[in-house]
Amino acid sequence: MSGVFPINIIRFFLLLLAQVLFFSNIHAHPLLDVYIYPIFILSLPFNTPRWLLMVLSLMMGLSVDFFLGSLGMHGAAALLLGFLRPNLVSIITPKGADFEINPNIYVQGIMWFAIYYSVAYLILLGSYFSIESWGFYNLFWLVIKILLSTTTSILISIFLLYLFTTDKRRRHT
């Protein structure tokens, strides 16, 4: 429990910088955005109280907004994700499963993480793009944009998780 604060603070700033300096500068296609900052929200310990989740999500979202010049939009979307995260976790977790405090891709497994990230990114990016476009695109293009961006973001995020997560089980053996 001792390392929870520093590790999350470091993760906050690293993800923020990676997002605004790299992933938001790729500009591959106007229908394709890559967002990795939700990893911060999804990696917070399971026992984080809901109000703290909401506050931290909002902070992350507004920080991203601050750099991308879209003040409030990522904030609103991230806040929604932070609010719904405890429900999401309890719905997709099998009853009686004994989880560690922190979400870890080696502990919960790739299937659990794939579902966890898919639903979470759909909530976040779906709400973000809906807010951002304000009816500018027609519904078809909006759905295409959400699906394309969500899929790409999930793949890149899970790849990053594998790169930067240590397998705790390996240490025990």
């Binding site: 979202g61 409030g72 806040l79 929604l80």
Partner: peptide, 26 residues
């Protein structure tokens, strides 16, 4: 109480978006 906190924070965000929608205000 959590729901109220959520709604008021969302309200704050949409206030920012509304303020920002003309971009000049940012």
């Amino acid at each position: 109480w959590l729901l109220i906190l959520f709604l008021s924070l969302e309200g704050f965000c949409f206030y920012l978006i509304y303020q920002n929608s003309k971009f000049h205000q940012v």
